[in-house]
Design a protein around this nucleic acid. Structure first.
Length: 355
DNA sequence: AACACGGGGCC
DNA sequence: GGCCCAGTGTT
């Protein structure tokens, strides 16, 4: 075993966290945890793992659940296609494979939502297959320790890191080593403020020699962050809220949120109001004028969505208030929105339509 | 090869 | 306000 792998394993045995999906041989909870932890920190994913594993202790129970119920449990975790793919894969395993999990890297990759990383992780942790996992932690640890300055976002860079990870993989205890290098990246060789003073690689780390720790790994972002502006109408009818299912091909597809207007900015009020009128005609068939204020900010990786809520201009003759009164509707103001329990905000996709 | 897809934590 | 996180699927 290389000195590198040995040091990783020693560090891991000394510093590892006690996590519920560790030291298990059943691939189901391991798969569950890996899907949940894609692009997600352990602290954030942990409660979701418990929710899912408690509610669906076997792959059959998950497979037999309604998709809406699965999405409801996933609510707030983000990247909702993970939930849909996971549910689809559960159905496939339950019905086509008789509940028998694929037991090797190649077959695991055939599952929806299981790519190179996840297939390697499950193959390694559940079936002790000798494959190297490469995730964000591995990129960081390897790039720093070995001074690799290749762009991890490029296919060429990805291959270089995969090859390096493969070459470092020990023949024995590769599962422990895989867990170890990721844990080391998550807890010690962190993106910001890595603890280089007390590091097992303090002597041989290439990044430390050149002071480039926080410059590595190199990741060239090409996608520009887009700004989007949503104005929400929050309408209540006898304790239920008007919600719409979001269309495919956009964010939160298939999920539900409040009726909304999208504009290029919040200052383009005139056009926003015009749209409002058109949109509200489906509710009231009347001409309405609304006034907007307040804000709710929602930041995504590649989209910056700023949302706010509107209420009506009370001076208006045929205003939404009147319509609301007629129909027994309540239109929420921003102050009232702020007092609502958090799940009622735009993370929500409850399937409760008033109209 | 580029891009879409979430939400939360950190500095 | 920008970056990152136990990445994958689509085009």
């Amino acid at each position: 075993m290389s000195g590198f792998a040995q040091k990783i394993i020693d560090w891991y045995n000394e510093n590892k966290r006690d996590l519920p999906w560790r030291n298990l041989s059943d691939p189901y909870p391991i798969w569950l945890s890996e899907i949940i932890l894609q692009q997600t920190r352990v602290d954030q994913g942990l409660p979701y793992f418990h929710k899912f594993f408690d509610k669906y202790p076997t792959v059959h129970l998950l497979a037999n659940a309604e998709e809406q119920e699965v999405l409801r449990l996933w609510q707030g975790l983000g990247y909702y296609s993970r939930a849909r793919n996971m549910h689809g894969a559960a159905k496939f395993i339950s019905s086509e494979l008789n509940g028998q999990f694929p037991d090797n890297f190649k077959d695991l990759k055939k599952l929806k939502g299981v790519g190179d990383y996840t297939a390697a992780a499950i193959a390694s942790f559940a079936f002790n297959e000798n494959v190297a996992v490469v995730d964000g932690n591995v990129y960081r640890v390897l790039s720093r320790r070995f001074g690799v300055e290749e762009d991890i976002a490029s296919p060429k860079g990805k291959k270089i890191f995969q090859d390096l990870a493969d070459s470092l993989l020990p023949q024995k205890k590769s599962d422990i080593y895989n867990q170890g290098i990721m844990e080391f990246g998550a807890l010690h060789c962190k993106p910001k403020n890595p603890d280089c003073m007390f590091c097992v690689f303090s002597q041989e780390c290439e990044a430390r020699k050149t002071g480039k720790q926080t410059d590595l790994p190199i990741k060239i972002r090409k996608v520009k962050i887009k700004n989007r502006f949503f104005t929400y109408l929050v309408l209540e009818f006898k304790g239920r809220f008007a919600m719409k299912e979001r269309l495919k091909g956009d964010i939160w597809q298939g999920l539900h949120d409040f009726p909304l207007l999208e504009s290029e900015n919040f200052y383009n009020e005139e056009s926003l109001f015009d749209q409002t009128l058109i949109s509200l005609k489906s509710l009231s068939r009347d001409v309405l004028r609304c006034e907007s204020f307040g804000s709710y900010k929602h930041i995504l990786t590649h989209q910056k969505i700023q949302a706010k809520f509107i209420h009506l201009n009370l001076k208006s003759e045929n205003n939404l208030n009147k319509i609301c009164e007629e129909y027994g509707l309540k239109l929420y103001s921003i102050e009232e929105i702020d007092k609502l329990p958090k799940p009622i905000l735009i993370n929500n996709f409850l399937k409760e339509h008033v109209f």
